[in-house]
Simulated assay, not measured.
Amino acid sequence: MSDHPTYPTSLGVSDRHTISLLGQDLSTDLIGKVSFGHLAYRLITLREPTAPQARVFEAVLVALADHGFTPTAIAARMTYLSAPESIQGALASGLLGGGSRFLGVSEDTGRFLADALAGADELPTTPEGWDALAADAVRRQQAAGRFVPGLGHHLHKDGDPRIPALYDIAREEGQLGPHLALFEAVGRVAPEVTGKALPLNGAGACGAALADIGIPLELLRGVVLLARCAGLLGHIAEEARGHHVAADVFADVERHAVYVAPDPAPATGGEDA
């Protein structure tokens, strides 16, 4: 018996003649027989998605794939302009921008909702009950001096068009669970509680939907980045085809850059002896 250490995994292993993934033969059992979204769900959860879960998961991937000239897309285009031989660098630069303002909102929302649900003695059974839980969660967030994740959008001031589509699919598939229910209630009560008419945003709804179909909270942002990678690749492909937005941005900023003298540094006194 060999004394060499082994490295156990439930994902993929290969030998000279075969590739196994999730315990199945990649060539005969998976290629051409499952969608990429279906496979991604299995890789993340190590569970076979139900048909309803798979549809919601795919819907989230589509909803998050691209949102135009966001900072992450511009970063990918600019990096490609600077280093066209490094497509991996361009993709990475876009993905690295996934944080609290763009792309990371899905994870932040999922955690916010999960914390509120965990603090409830029991889940509400009426719209009024969900509204009360939501109002309490929003007040606690405000009292802590934190923004309510999933509320507001820099562009869709009158409502994010992804919200109805995502909720319709979740309802059709019987996947509108507690996270989506609570998020919907947040949208109802937030204007009164916060004093601001901020709509729910699609990124927050995606985080709630992913949590409801069993994606672990710590992996929510990873799913968002998986989806957005497709959009970033599209932006890079457009640059490669000659639609040089990055060059125009660079030229415009360079032409209009102006020197401004820095503010004088504040005087600092010495320490008392």
Score class of each variant (00 low, 15 high):
residue 104 G to I: 03
residue 26 L to Y: 11
residue 8 P to N: 01
residue 124 P to A: 01
residue 209 A to D: 05
residue 127 P to T: 01
residue 161 P to Q: 02
residue 148 V to Q: 06
residue 35 S to K: 12
residue 64 L to R: 10
residue 116 A to W: 06
residue 121 D to H: 10
residue 117 L to C: 04
residue 246 A to I: 05
residue 208 A to M: 02
residue 87 I to E: 14
residue 192 E to M: 02
residue 109 T to P: 04
residue 105 V to A: 15
residue 44 I to P: 05
residue 225 L to G: 00
residue 96 L to C: 00
residue 148 V to R: 06
residue 100 S to L: 09
residue 266 P to L: 08
residue 67 H to D: 04
residue 191 P to M: 04
residue 123 L to A: 13
residue 53 Q to R: 15
residue 8 P to Q: 11
residue 75 A to Q: 02
residue 22 L to Y: 07
residue 197 A to E: 03
residue 111 R to Y: 12
residue 269 G to R: 15
residue 43 L to R: 06
residue 130 W to K: 02
residue 182 L to A: 07
residue 87 I to Q: 10
residue 136 D to W: 06
residue 193 V to F: 01
residue 186 V to H: 07
residue 57 F to T: 13
residue 122 E to K: 15
residue 183 F to D: 05
residue 163 I to E: 01
residue 55 R to T: 14
residue 132 A to K: 00
residue 186 V to T: 08
residue 109 T to R: 09
residue 90 A to K: 02
residue 172 E to Y: 07
residue 148 V to M: 11
residue 197 A to M: 00
residue 132 A to F: 01
residue 104 G to W: 05
residue 1 M to T: 11
residue 82 S to Y: 09
residue 27 S to P: 00
residue 204 G to V: 07
residue 99 G to L: 11
residue 44 I to H: 07
residue 180 L to Y: 03
residue 258 V to N: 11
residue 162 R to G: 05
residue 242 G to P: 06
residue 272 D to I: 12
residue 19 I to F: 04
residue 14 S to C: 11
residue 171 R to C: 04
residue 179 H to W: 11
residue 158 D to G: 11
residue 250 F to T: 14
residue 30 L to S: 12
residue 33 K to G: 09
residue 228 R to I: 07
residue 92 A to V: 02
residue 35 S to H: 10
residue 249 V to D: 03
residue 87 I to Y: 09
residue 251 A to H: 12
residue 57 F to Y: 14
residue 148 V to W: 08
residue 139 R to I: 13
residue 109 T to E: 09
residue 11 L to I: 07
residue 53 Q to Y: 09
residue 255 R to K: 14
residue 200 L to N: 04
residue 236 I to Y: 00
residue 148 V to Y: 06
residue 247 A to Y: 01
residue 40 A to E: 09
residue 270 G to F: 10
residue 168 D to V: 13
residue 61 L to F: 13
residue 148 V to H: 02
residue 61 L to N: 10
residue 167 Y to S: 05
residue 187 G to I: 02
residue 232 L to M: 01
residue 195 G to R: 02
residue 257 A to C: 14
residue 96 L to S: 01
residue 23 G to S: 11
residue 271 E to F: 13
residue 237 A to N: 08
residue 199 P to K: 01
residue 250 F to R: 15
residue 236 I to E: 14
residue 11 L to S: 08
residue 41 Y to M: 11
residue 216 P to T: 04
residue 46 L to G: 04
residue 90 A to P: 01
residue 104 G to S: 08
residue 266 P to W: 03
residue 6 T to L: 12
residue 170 A to F: 02
residue 238 E to H: 02
residue 114 A to Y: 02
residue 12 G to C: 11
residue 269 G to K: 14
residue 222 G to A: 09
residue 44 I to R: 05
residue 170 A to S: 15
residue 45 T to N: 07
residue 239 E to V: 01
residue 67 H to W: 03
residue 48 E to N: 12
residue 257 A to Q: 15
residue 266 P to S: 07
residue 42 R to F: 05
residue 132 A to Y: 02
residue 5 P to R: 12
residue 53 Q to N: 14
residue 121 D to I: 03
residue 82 S to H: 12
residue 111 R to Q: 15
residue 220 L to K: 13
residue 82 S to P: 03
residue 65 A to E: 12
residue 12 G to N: 01
residue 227 A to Y: 03
residue 221 R to Q: 07
residue 148 V to L: 00
